[in-house]
Design a binder for these strands. Structure first.
Lengths: 251, 251
DNA sequence: CCAAGTTGTCTAGTAGAATAGACAAGTGGG
DNA sequence: CCCACTTGTCTATTCTACTAGACAACTTGG
């Protein structure tokens, strides 16, 4: 008769985990298949209706799963055509002139920087040393999420001397770019002095901000930017979604 | 004003993952804390109302999370008193006389065996060799979930020769015990001939049956049971929740 | 251009998640 | 024993996940 589908009963939904929504299970299933390489980059996924019948699920539920995958940057959809796998990583060159907006724009994508929060705090040993300050000196701390085509690429914590850049937070909120924020202070030709790259896994907070699951790999990029004259301006600790970018170091 | 709490908005629920129910997130959070050792065995958890305010959540939601933890066998609750951590593992001795019901009963718990399914199938090379049959000979295959105090302990696949034990499935469904099923065939003094122990992680199917998350550790126990005279009776491939039992091998 | 196939959007209904509050039933300490 | 505290259970309400169906907007290949 098939009048009711009690959902938790039994049947074909072998991937249903208690307390996890159906669309999330389907999305995770596709993520795994894509990551394993079951779908090549650029390949078209089956039609939504086809996936729906395969999972024994309504098409709307599949659409939700696909929206999740798109938000994670794993696929993109074209109306009337289909949904396509997108696993190629954004090349992110690390050099003297390392500017997120420029790099993303050069790759033909739309760059975006959102300030999550800012505050004044005393410099710890690490930050003080990098910026040439004394421990405890006041510094501005910015938390910024950067995205390419609306897909989060990195979360970064940035510190600047509060003495010189006291209002950096407010200015960034308008400027939405570090380069334009520094323009405001008359700093134009800043350059990267050094970059330190390591790896880790997402914690709950960064996972949320990057729209990743917990325990996904991230590239940790610490750096120091200085003026043309070599004066320290800012130091950052960025966490990049390793599934979405590749750091390029020329030498 | 705080009239509405739109849930997804922001705020204190730092552990909320999109597509995962609140109670599940809380349960997972506690599981992790317990596994890490933040709560000793036998320790009392905070009162439900206290946990509720700490997470900024209704008490009912906490109760759901606690019910989940109880189902996973990580805690037990005592009305009027509190909820207590239970991380001690069931000692499961492997010897000549290895009977699930007896072992669990001896430890003061209630044993239970539920037949998930049974069918006839041709013996593969492995099974045929163990049972002294030819490849392709018909064998009875049973899928059994075993629990102690309603907490799933293991899932096991058992093969018996169909020639002699053709109706083992139907009989087990009544008897709910391998020992009593074999009694039915007049086999009384069977004994364990060998046991092979390895380790793996849960797949989606076993995770569901064992009420575990995927990628939790399991002990894989393969074995052969024989009659008092040494004739092969049955061979099994059991997957035991490594969080809930410890295998004891005397020598 | 047309037709088949695909994604996007809308409406509507059902079941379950989460909230809120109240009270019963049980425990434990003074 | 009594009282403070805890878990268990009930009712009611709101919001969302999921289902169902229909149609519009769009792409693609013949």
């Amino acid at each position: 008769m098939l009048t009711k589908t009690p959902r938790g009963s039994s049947g074909k939904n072998h991937l249903l985990e208690r307390g996890v929504m159906l669309w999330r299970c389907i999305a995770d299933d596709f993520e795994q298949m894509i990551m394993i390489g079951k779908h090549d980059n650029g390949a078209r996924l089956p039609a939504e209706s086809e996936i729906a019948t395969k999972y024994g699920v309504n098409r709307h539920t599949v659409r939700r799963a696909m929206a999740e995958l798109a938000a994670r940057g794993l696929v993109y959809t074209e109306r009337g055509s289909g949904t396509y796998v997108k696993t190629d990583k954004l090349d992110y060159p690390i050099g003297q002139r390392t500017r997120f907006s420029e790099i993303v724009a050069a790759a033909g994508h739309e760059a975006e920087g959102r300030l999550q929060g800012h505050r004044l705090e005393p410099a710890n040993e690490e930050v003080a040393q990098r910026l040439g300050l004394n421990v405890g000196d006041s510094v501005v701390r910015l938390e910024i999420v950067r995205a390419s085509d609306r897909v989060p690429i990195s979360v970064a914590t940035t510190w600047l001397s509060a003495e010189r850049y006291n209002d950096a937070g407010k200015i960034y909120r308008q400027a939405r770019s570090i380069t334009r924020t520094l323009d405001h202070y008359g700093v134009t030709g800043y350059r990267r002095k050094w970059t330190r790259i390591s790896a880790a896994f997402t914690d709950a907070v960064d996972a949320g901000r990057l729209r990743l699951s917990v325990h996904r790999p991230i590239l940790v990029v610490e750096s120091l930017d200085v003026t043309a004259g070599g004066e320290p301006i800012l130091t950052t600790r960025g966490r990049f979604a390793a599934d979405r970018i590749a750091l390029i170091v020329e030498s």
